[in-house]
Design a protein around this nucleic acid. Structure first.
Lengths: 246, 246
DNA sequence: GAGTGGTCTAGACCACTTC
DNA sequence: AAGTGGTCTAGACCACTCG
């Protein structure tokens, strides 16, 4: 297996990617393990550095490996637990802008509370530990589009002011947490509208809504910085993906 | 604007990508327009071919441009209409495998009918034109995970046999349509379980479900080859995305 | 056959991390 | 200072499309 056929019609970078994928799958390269450096892979498989990088680019885009400048490349921790990998994550505000709307934000509340179980697990908090909970509504051209609750560990409990147009939420997290948010894990599920959300969207209780549970992760995919619940108003905003063939 | 600062700290490939992005945004490069060839861009901006390709790779991954081997690179038709771009699309069967299940498929029915409006629009069919409709259920370790309806234009009405383990749906489409499916447009929405779907999942009518409407497109994103409705059973399968920061 | 994008090489310098 | 990944160049050959 760990062989590259230099005369094959299969591109060399693809063969290398396949070899590494296989080693990750069989945990010959376990999660967290440092890969050989690019120059080592060059020599081992008799490839140029660009070709090695092309292979690693592929795996990085698939979320299988994580690169760290000046340090090395290692196997991702999430390698087998997700279904899809997206290229870019957008802030809620940017999402609305891209959809052609003018976004505005209304802050509903900001309080300390013991978070729901799902939040506790995502942030790996001890039971009964409080978090800060920001609740707000994003409007698209004055129609309510998203109902959002952000749960921040108290260590990050800064004075995040959403009325600040300039700074996005992720840049705020960078600053407050001291960790750069690089990935966002998104769980998409359908729920029934209820309580405050139904009220915010002026829709009947029980109407199906899209709920996106977002976990903000650092570059190593190890540390969860923040957790967020986002309810989408389907009347205003569709959730659409363009995917490329695998 | 259309200038590259070779002494800037901003990478050259990123500057070029930004220039092209801007030209696409302002429709100076309108949808469908051929871009200058890579060698032309090389000369125009005084960059090496690899650097030009790095910029184009970025835009292609964002879905802004489409490349055609031997022909050229042009501005995508969908450039502004989607929210997210994913790297890879998986067949339903592969999706279940990746989630760690053993997939099986049960064909429910296969009939000619006049499709719902949403299908007609996606496939750009005239009113009253019939399509073939395959209905099936995908099981994950014998639990019903997805309820799927594929709508195929009659021209593609082959004898697609899902029991064939070897061939996936997209490869079938390639063969039957004579067009290689390169992109899948996915619309995600929450709906209430009803009728056959509720029955298949043994869940109460009215329970929120995830519905994914998939449109299969060729490489030019011009031709819709097939349309598919996929209902997800949340009890079995979560829909999860790992996204990278933009 | 001319032009295109796809792949590949051998080299180079840089910024970053670690020791 | 040594090693890492990030960027960049100049050149090459290939497979593909089109006239």
């Amino acid at each position: 297996m760990p062989f590259i056929d230099h005369r094959s019609v299969i591109p060399l970078y693809y063969q290398l990617a396949q070899i590494l994928r296989e080693q990750i799958r069989t945990t010959e390269l376990p999660a967290g393990q440092l890969l050989p450096s690019e120059r080592e892979l060059m020599n081992t498989y008799d490839l140029s550095r660009n070709t090695v990088r092309q292979a690693l680019d592929l795996l990085a885009r698939e979320g299988l490996i994580v690169r760290e400048h000046g340090h090395g490349t290692y196997v991702s921790n999430l390698s087998n637990s997700f279904h899809y990998m997206m290229d870019t994550f957008y802030e809620n505000r940017d999402l609305l802008k891209r959809a052609g709307y003018t976004p505005t934000v209304k802050q509903i509340s900001s309080q300390r509370l013991i978070p729901p179980e799902v939040v506790r697990q995502a942030l790996r908090l001890e039971p009964q530990v409080e978090t800060l909970c920001h609740t707000m509504i994003f409007f698209a051209d004055d129609r309510p589009a998203m109902y959002t609750q952000d749960f921040l560990p108290l260590a990050l409990a800064g004075e995040y002011d959403l009325s600040l147009e300039g700074e996005g939420f992720m840049r705020y997290l960078d600053r407050a947490s001291g960790v750069r948010v690089e990935y966002v894990l998104v769980d998409i599920s359908p729920v029934e509208a209820a309580g405050e959300v139904a009220h915010a969207f002026s829709c009947p209780v029980g109407k199906p809504l899209l709920l996106m549970k977002e976990t903000f992760l650092d570059g190593a995919q190890n540390r969860a910085v923040c957790f967020s619940l986002n309810y989408f108003n389907q009347e205003v905003l569709n959730f659409r993906l363009l995917t490329r063939r695998g």
